[in-house]
């Protein structure tokens, strides 16, 4: 099963629109990152964080998250408790900088339903 969920099409359209809009709008980013471990699934939206909220790359990369997508979920401690302890998403999602990790669960947790709507998964499902 494929784990990387950066849709090349989305990325291409995004890159193109960014070029058209000019460099002032923002920076290239990784699109949607969909974590599937330890459970399905959590969607991190680069668009929300970079374009809407205006964060810059090195606020998270590479100290909190490596540049390589989904590398965080290979760590055994990639669980809610780590977030409550200020690791990973919890570095900002602590209730002061951004909404707390123990609130608004389904905002990030897009679930199995969210996972199935990923383009890679759709292709896999239709191939069955």
């Amino acid at each position: 099963m494929k784990n990387y969920i950066i849709n090349p099409m989305t990325a291409a359209i995004l890159a193109l629109s960014l070029l058209l809009a000019g460099a002032a709008v923002g920076q290239e980013h990784g699109g949607d990152i969909v974590y599937s471990k330890p459970l399905k699934s959590v969607t991190f939206s680069h668009k929300v964080h970079v374009e809407d909220k205006g964060l810059i790359c090195d606020m998270c990369h590479a100290r909190t998250f490596e540049m390589k997508a989904l590398s965080a979920q290979e760590n055994g401690d990639f669980k809610m408790q780590a977030l409550y302890d200020g690791k990973y998403c919890g570095a900002c999602h602590n209730g002061t900088m951004a909404f707390a990790s123990n609130s608004r669960c389904a905002t990030c947790h897009t679930g199995v339903k969210g996972y199935k709507t990923q383009p890679g998964e759709q292709a896999a499902a239709s191939a069955h």
Binding site: L39, K40, C105, A106, H109, T110, G111, V112, K113
Partner: peptide, 9 residues
């Protein structure tokens, strides 16, 4: 209801 994250376990 607000705790469900649709992990479907």
């Amino acid at each position: 209801q607000n705790r469900c994250i649709d992990c479907e376990r």
